[in-house]
Design a protein around this nucleic acid. Sequence first.
DNA 1: TGTAATTTTGTAATGATTTCAAACATGTAA
DNA 2: TTACATGTTTGAAATCATTACAAAATTACA
Lengths: 142, 142
Amino acid sequence: MNITAQHLLSHNIKPSAQRIAIMKYLMEHPIHPTVDKIYSELLPDMPTLSRTTVYNTLRVLEEHNALLTLNIDSKTVHYDGNITPHAHFMCRCCGSIYDMPLPEGILNPIPKMSSFNVEVIKLYYKGVCEACQQKEKLEINN
Amino acid sequence: MNITAQHLLSHNIKPSAQRIAIMKYLMEHPIHPTVDKIYSELLPDMPTLSRTTVYNTLRVLEEHNALLTLNIDSKTVHYDGNITPHAHFMCRCCGSIYDMPLPEGILNPIPKMSSFNVEVIKLYYKGVCEACQQKEKLEINN
DNA sequence: TGTAATTTTGTAATGATTTCAAACATGTAA
DNA sequence: TTACATGTTTGAAATCATTACAAAATTACA
């Protein structure tokens, strides 16, 4: 029994070949991929894989809290196999998404927050990453 | 010249009838409506209004920082005419979106944040609102 | 082995958003 | 005022991510 299957079982998810492949891909590639990225990366090694299976599987993984779904991009959903609490930064130039630390204390006041029962927190930063800032400077100088 | 038109001008937006109507609706209805909500609410008083115009106008308003776009709901975008910094809570039962205070200090560390140039911060809470918590209790008791 | 339950697959449908070109409105110069 | 240029609105059609669905494949287990 491999480690990814055990990880799925610990979330009460039956570890099929497809689910293992998708979960493994997410854990080994912390690049916050989209459905299409996951699908096209896994297809060469799993030629019968269906896009619908990727959608289905990601929904199952989400429902069992085995991944985070990111709505930082209004065009499409991105997925994160790292479920430890953290924030995300998306560059408006290159579209890359980076992990960020969660500010101190942001998790603490949740239970006291008025009468709402807060179950999930999403913190998104948007702007320009280091690499794209350099590119912008070069363009201005030319 | 009405106050909404002045508001648009202060954001360098030419105040057409449609733009005024949409901006006014957003400012007078802090319910974080969707495109379809805005369209169907304005249609009776502006029968020639096109859905495309609502999309176009919201994009113009966003580009000129006259509103906030919320990607808290993965299904569709919600809009907020209140541009003072604040967070949002969405109820997973009824879908309502509420304004929330931004935690102390969350805006301060932005400039120091590694080498990223942060331009926008979005903080979303998800869970169950007070009213839906009451409903859930009633259902359990019956 | 046989049968029920679950999972995967591919196709078709859905629905939010965008594209596009024509119609319309507005501003300005003569 | 007219003429022209510019910007805005409109509605139809296209796009594209996602979902629905039913058949096929796989798994669990008696």
